[in-house]
Design a protein around this nucleic acid. Structure first.
Length: 354
RNA sequence: GUGGGCGUAGCGUAGCGGUUAACGCGCCAGGUUGUGGCCCUGGAGAUCGAGGGUUCAAAUCCCUCCGUCCACCCCA
């Protein structure tokens, strides 16, 4: 689009091509291959926003560039699958397909066109256009009237050349050996045109056009297309917001928010400096600590400590100040003991119970 | 691109033509003598999305714009 000054601007629409650009720009072909990279970045779409579809969203992705072996396809899929598993997402389905390469795809597209030729009046307007422009995407149409036609269409995996068929078989064997189950989906083609061979998509149980939470595939021609030598690549991208939607939907447990271990409270203005110094000392020793601030009463400070979810309150009053100790209170059970200033970090790390 | 819903304190909402805009959560302060969680009391905090119009009177009705959400559609 053009900005107000008439300059031509683009907002990044996906992550793979930029990573390939970086691979070329920084001469990563000199590194041990394949090069494994990841990204986390805002992504933009010029669509009307709705549930799970935003003008700006965040994508996390990983790419392995410089190796054609199906083992790397399996590694990338394994990585994505394990990530979802670790997050606690359940009920996901991995859809898999192979869409061939330069060698075998033309023959399939020919067969697909042959099949559609006498059915063009049965399908929707968009599909009429796709027939000429991008026949693979005929398989992806969501229109009701096109479904019966799609159901009878030739299946691409039956048209793969020997190399592509071998690659796909290898990938499936790797996935099975890793205990990752998947569904063969001969209609899976994805929205980007650079894919070759492997394509995959992960979908939650919920129906809907916005359902896919992640996917990817192999792009063995892309680097060359961007000006490099022929270099294979495989990767995935996953939408953070859609992951969050599904985590919420499933009420998956989230990690606790960061809480201070120790809240340092003071009883008198004279102890404020000591409190500050102790908190600083604790932080330096790897203990998350916060010193009270302002003119709050001790009671208010204790409330504050509780509201912040601190594990301990270290209280410094006149007596403690004089003796170089703190009253260390374990907030969960209310037990309290005197601890020398220098021993607070150790005592907290050990736990207050002996 | 098409259609629809909604915009009121930090958050969630009520009020839908007529006194100083209400409630819950949160926040802050008190509840006597050095200490939290529950409870009680008090307080701060709102150009009622913006602009224009109707009316004696508008958060409440009308118009325009902006934002946001949802569906269709699309999905570099």
């Amino acid at each position: 689009f053009q900005d107000r000054g008439g300059q031509e601007l683009a907002l990044r629409p996906e992550g793979t091509a930029p990573v390939c650009r970086a691979y070329l720009q920084h001469g990563m072909h000199t590194l041990p291959q394949p090069v494994r990279l990841w990204y986390w970045t805002p992504i933009f779409r010029y669509d009307r926003p709705q549930a799970g579809r935003y003008r700006q969203h965040t994508q996390f992705g990983a790419e392995a560039i410089g190796e054609a072996d199906a083992a790397v396809d399996a590694e990338i899929i394994d990585l994505l699958w394990r990530l979802y598993e670790d997050l606690g997402l359940t009920g996901l389905t991995l859809h898999m397909n192979s869409i061939g390469d330069q060698q075998c795809r033309p023959a399939y597209l020919e067969a697909l066109r042959d099949y559609y030729r006498d059915k063009l009046k049965l399908v929707c307007n968009d599909c009429e256009g796709r027939y000429e422009r991008n026949p693979l995407r005929l398989l992806d149409c969501k229109q009701e009237r096109c479904q019966p036609v799609i159901a009878g269409a030739p299946v691409i995996v039956n048209y793969l050349c020997a190399e592509c068929a071998r690659h796909f078989a290898d990938l499936r064997a790797y996935l099975e050996s890793a205990g990752i189950s998947y569904v063969l989906n001969p209609r899976l083609v994805r929205g980007l045109d650079y894919y070759t061979r492997t394509v995959f998509e992960v979908q939650p149980q919920e129906e809907g056009s916005q359902s896919s939470i992640g996917g990817g595939g192999r792009y063995d021609g892309l680097i060359e297309q961007l000006g490099g030598r022929p270099t294979p690549g495989i990767g995935f991208g996953s939408g953070i917001e859609r992951i969050v939607i599904n985590l919420k939907r499933q009420e998956a447990p989230l990690p606790d928010a960061q809480r201070p271990q120790v809240y340092v409270a003071y009883q008198t203005p004279a102890a404020r400096m000591q409190a500050f110094r102790l908190a600083s000392e604790l932080r330096r020793n790897g203990v998350a600590a916060i010193a009270a601030s302002g003119e709050r009463s001790l009671k208010a400070q204790m409330r504050h400590a509780d509201a912040l979810g601190a594990a301990y309150a270290a209280i410094i009053g006149e007596r403690e100040l004089k003796e170089g100790v703190v009253a260390l209170k374990h907030l969960a059970d209310g037990t309290q003991e005197m601890v020398a200033l220098g021993d607070v970090a150790g005592r907290v790390k050990r736990g207050i119970s002996r």
